[in-house]
Design a protein around this nucleic acid. Structure first.
Lengths: 187, 187
DNA sequence: TACAACTGAATGAACATTCACTCAAACTAA
DNA sequence: TTAGTTTGAGTGAATGTTCATTCAGTTGTA
């Protein structure tokens, strides 16, 4: 009986399925099983709704990334756990992948909010990189570069697998992907 | 006096500046210095206009990537030339970066057209990867993975530098970025 | 009854597209 | 040459559509 939940779920499904442009409030209402006006009892505007969705998704991602992440493990182990979690979050639930993609291109979401949300995910990543550099296991480069390159390659590979599965006839090994990322950043 | 040219240029500027959503035909017409109706003498629909822009941009990118690319050089040299060209195309002309970003999220551009356009760019990349694997210099993995990961990381890093310059107080060395990519794919 | 939650038709704004019109250049016939 | 005629690029107000948002009315519940 949680209408707010229904509305957020419906919005997720529709944005992931049709794209942000092609999901009018009327359609969201229909999928959520309520009238269009009801949405406005829970969200002031459509922009508000999209923002709430983005915030929720970011939190989910942050939580996923830190599952089983143990800061007392060795650097390589931490790297594989953290980015493996991230990759699976995108890859096992393609809806997440598409949502992040769509919402990232949405002008309603300010760069500030985007950073703030992403920072939750990548904050632990900063410490990981710093520790790795201190142990001379990771290239001595700005964290922003190390993180962005890893993030970008995993994001793109999961996107492409999702959008063009034909191009990957044999399943792609997560280990192999993470090893490529590790090779890129390791000293 | 080339109206078509003017219209394409105006569209590029506006999409890069305001985003695809925020550039109505009326605004494009104004910037191109013509009436709204005139655009329809050159492009059947707005979608058509956007498609033409995307095709043109893809061709530019393909041409850029192959500048000074010599297939008789060694693998590492070819890798650095090819992907260095790609990175500079994005990085030196942020408009290109933003345009690719905006147009990639546009549902009007079919996955098919996108691949076709991208393939022009990355076709030479396939041979590069195959040659590299034959010489045991590059990891024995599907080309699609090797290319997508490299493409993704360079794309993301140039995007982030463009959108959030504050996060990169010191200039980022192109050599360092390419070395990271090379380390990721090398055997 | 009162009150909150809910509904979906109605409203108005934004926008792609159309089309009746303008006018300068090209062409023709004298 | 020149007056008359045709052509078609160019124009922008008008049209029709798509939506976000509102609100008068309905339903369910205490």
């Amino acid at each position: 009986m949680d209408k707010r939940r229904n509305i957020l779920e419906a919005t997720s499904d529709l944005i992931a399925g049709q794209g942000l442009q092609n999901c009018p409030m009327s359609m969201i209402a229909k999928h959520a099983g309520c009238g269009a006006g009801t949405i406005y009892r829970y969200f002031e505007t459509k922009e508000d709704l999209v923002l709430a969705l983005f915030t929720e998704l970011s939190n989910d991602m942050a939580e996923s990334c830190l599952q089983g992440y143990d800061e007392s493990s060795c650097i390589k182990q931490r790297f594989f756990t953290f980015w493996g979690n991230f990759y699976r979050f995108m890859h096992e639930t393609p809806r997440n992948q598409t949502l992040i993609e769509q919402l990232s291109a949405c002008p309603a979401i300010s760069q500030e909010l985007r950073d703030q949300a992403m920072d939750k995910v990548i904050h632990a990543g900063n410490k990981l990189m710093d520790d790795g550099k201190a142990q001379l296991l990771i290239k001595n480069m700005p964290n922003e570069i190390l993180k962005t390159m890893t993030f970008g390659s995993l994001m793109m590979i999961s996107k492409k697998q999702h959008m063009m599965p034909d191009m990957f006839p044999e399943p792609v090994s997560e280990q192999d992907l993470l090893t490529m990322c590790w090779d890129a950043v390791k000293a």
